[in-house]
Amino acid sequence: MDGQLPAVALFRLGHLFVSDTVVTTWGLMLFLFLLCRGHNRGFHTERTAWEITREGLVLAIQEAIDAVLPEAGKRVLPFVGTLWIYLAAANLTGILPGLHSPTADLSTTTGLALLVFLSVHWYGIQIHGLRRYLRHYVEPNPILLPFQIVSELSRTVALAVRLFGNMFSLEMAALLVIIVAGFLAPIPILFLHIIEALVQAYIFGMLALVYIAGGIQSLGTKALAKEG
């Protein structure tokens, strides 16, 4: 929260400018990688508290996914689970002094929304096949196709803008409170930041899960049953 919310290009990587958002994301990736890396211990060995926490986190994510999409929970777990974990970490990064959340950058949220948009079709096509998947856009009536397309695009845009808007405004509000009220006043705002960060991560991931489940379940579960 250094008062410079817009992303700043730090250096150039070929034709790409590497901004502080990307660098922060790399740091987050390294942090998450170090946290999640661990040995796959056997059944009889005693587990550490972190291993138990890690297992609990993964199982909680899988349980939440299975509640919405029991047919393909394991398949979408890496994508949706990573969304939740990454967004929670990224949203909370804004609390740290000198850093701002990567999700307060529209480029990041747009990229994630695009990934969600693509993943919906990716999983749908993967499970139902291209023709069968595309057919659901024109069923029960082809006249609904434009509305379907608008719906897809609008919800993707909404997904990107919602997360960006919430996190950007949250950091902006915190910045303004610090500027206006001084040192101790931002503490409640920080609590609000934590809650908001976690809620927004949950909402983004849950919406992504719901969109993916909608794409998979729009044709019923017969195809899934055939796939076994």
Binding site: P6, A7, V22, L112
Partner: peptide
């Protein structure tokens, strides 16, 4: 503002 470098790098990163 939408920075395309950040956009693509974030996608790759994710």
């Amino acid at each position: 503002q939408l920075d395309w470098s950040t956009f693509w790098l974030e996608i790759i990163n994710f």
